[in-house]
Amino acid sequence: MDGDVSIAGLATSLALIGVAAAISLWQRLGLERQILWAATRALVQLLLVGAALALVIEPGRPLVWSWLWIVAMVAYAGDVARRRAPEVPGLLWLAILAFGSGAVITLGVLFGFGVMPLEGRTLVPLAGMMVGNSMTATVLVARRMVEEVRDKRDEVEARLALGQPARQAATPYVRAALRSAVTPQIETTKATGLVFLPGAMTGLILAGVPPTQAVLVQAVVMFLVLGAVASTTVVIALGLVRRLFTPDHRLRWLPRPAER
């Protein structure tokens, strides 16, 4: 294919890592070891994933392997979310539930209505896009919810003290957190094609797919991501209401993050 990269080409591209490391040395950033480590790690991870993906989605392989891949990916993403927002109580399972729901909704539409053919080579990358792109928003909404409710504890409790149920008392903060998490994705969606050329499309064009075809795939991916961001964040926000409040409508005490 037109876009094939040879081993020599890959090695040559490492020169760009050399540029980054050289800048770090020159400006005494002390980041050169990290840059080299990151590049090596990324390369090894990608090679491993590539090999595994080849196994999972090669034609003729049963689709169950792709589904298992997605389950593992969702579980791993839940763990990443938990580690990135340790101050959020019980985020692991909530994030897994959120990514799971996001996957069911978005992949359900794409495959259920035959937008894409249901095959390993479509299922795994689309699920990857969905989970990967919702990750930031998921962590953002979780942190924001906890911050809002912790910093505005007086206000939240004043609402509860008026006899508002927890769900109602939390509504303004759920709304604020959801807006802050979804808005960046809306901005990205608006700017697509004008400000930057997104990954899927760039990849397809590099691989030799005609741009007219590539943009259609990209549009589907953008819609997938926006839908996924909205559905994962709403699951997180509403799920967190149940974690932050007790069943008898009290706001739990949240420890302040120890180090910041």
Partner: peptide, 10 residues
Amino acid sequence: PLALRRQVGM
């Protein structure tokens, strides 16, 4: 608790 809080304001 919700009924109580309407009876006992804060």
